[in-house]
Write a protein that binds this DNA or RNA. Structure first.
Lengths: 132, 132
DNA sequence: ATAATAGTTGCATAATTGCGCAATTGTGCA
DNA sequence: TGCACAATTGCGCAATTATGCAACTATTAT
């Protein structure tokens, strides 16, 4: 049962839930810098939250050159599938809409479905704060 | 989205998940002392966890004399319904089997579907520790 | 009224978590 | 080799949460 409480704990943080929401609704693999631009959170924070999600078995990663792509864990037990299904069906709040808009903007910069740029809003990298 | 992280946070504790599991699988309303005996946890702990579950909107309570009966919240949004469904379908681990055995024992003491006794293992009340 | 009991709450302390910064790792490229 | 950059990690501090005990409320029985 610890497994399950760990999954719930991983989902009990707003940043982590926003990440999962993007992964679940777009059904794409996203790299750290794309998530950084989408959530307007500094890279180290995104990276830390992704690690927690990975340890909980919700997310898996794939390294490709300098980039690491994250996606929902493929092999899910019925429990995890049920929980992720519930998240996937959530109506998007303002925050989610903006996250998704940001993501669409960044995804349009991909070349051949690959992220070949880095963080767009470089300001995050240094300060962790949004520009406007 | 805070609502949802709050729900996940409420479920990210083993004691609370055990309570929800009993409520979800028995589909009965259970009083605090019955949960105390089932989980073999001291009453104040059960009471505190129930309060958190209640604040998260997962549980509702009904007072009847000295007793307070708790049950799953009746009016559930699709999200909550999905999450509780996932919990309900969990295969019982050893802990859950014992919890349920304990509960069955205590439920058999009811008169007319009412709990008219208190905590059976009174030792919990004073020390919070299991007898054997 | 007094005692007993179901349940709750306040408080002090311990443990955990979150966040930002700086430093580090790993990879590709000049 | 040295540099740029995506991503990660260790550390310190603040904030939050968990835990156990004791005191408290509410209700019933004597």
């Amino acid at each position: 049962m610890q497994n399950y409480t760990e999954i719930f704990k991983a989902l009990s943080d707003e940043t982590r839930l926003r990440i999962i929401y993007l992964l679940a609704t777009t059904k794409k693999e996203l790299c750290c810098c794309e998530l950084t631009d989408s959530l307007e959170e500094p890279p180290y924070n995104i990276s830390k939250q992704l690690k927690i999600l990975k340890n909980a078995g919700l997310v898996e990663s794939r390294k490709e050159g300098k980039w690491v792509y994250f996606s929902l864990q493929k092999h899910k037990d019925p429990f995890t599938k049920g929980v992720l299904g519930a998240i996937n069906s959530l109506p998007p709040a303002d925050r989610q809409k903006r996250d998704k808009q940001n993501l669409m903007k960044v995804l349009s910069l991909r070349k051949g479905d690959k992220c070949l740029h880095g963080v767009q809003n470089k300001y995050f990298v240094k300060t962790g704060k949004s520009l406007k």
